[in-house]
């Protein structure tokens, strides 16, 4: 299991590539990768930047628990999860969920499950900085998008 919080811009594909260098790729027929990036708009607002607050200690534990429960439900999977913290600019990667498995269904379903649980359970909070310089907390994640 690989779970990490990253306080600076990172390349999700670099993390995927590095992990694949140490995985038994001849046994992993499927990879499902989700990359979430920061938009410069939210609802009808233009957003210039964002701060991602977290709960040190609990956030790491929650991510590890979510991944461990997915690994228990789909024993064949291998996961790499990374989440940005701190100050973020538009187009920066916010989250990477990569799941490898022997077959496609486990990889695809586990990737979706980990992402949805992360969005609802992991202790992160977004504060947006708007174009007029004001800041506001995001009240909730967009449901079903």
């Amino acid at each position: 299991m690989g779970v990490r919080l990253i306080g600076e811009p990172f390349d999700p594909w670099d993390l995927v590539r590095k992990r694949e260098q140490v995985l038994p790729m001849e046994k992993l027929g499927a990879a499902s990768v989700f990359v979430g990036r920061m938009r410069d708009f939210n609802d009808d607002r233009d957003v210039r930047g964002m701060f991602l607050e977290h709960y040190p200690g609990m956030t790491e534990r929650e991510l590890e628990r979510i991944v461990a429960e997915a690994e228990s439900r789909w024993p064949s999977i291998t996961c790499e999860v990374a989440h940005r913290i701190g100050a973020v600019d538009p187009a920066d990667t916010l989250v990477l969920v990569a799941v490898w498995s022997a077959h496609r269904i486990a990889a695809r379903d586990a990737c979706a499950e980990i992402l949805e649980r992360l969005k609802h359970e992991a202790t992160f909070w977004k504060r947006e900085r708007l174009t007029d310089g004001s800041e506001q907390w995001v009240e909730k994640n967009t449901p079903g998008h």
Binding site: V95, A122, F124
Partner: peptide, 9 residues
């Protein structure tokens, strides 16, 4: 700890 709904991802 007390906090508002989480908004990560």
């Amino acid at each position: 700890a007390f906090f508002p709904p989480v908004t990560g991802g």
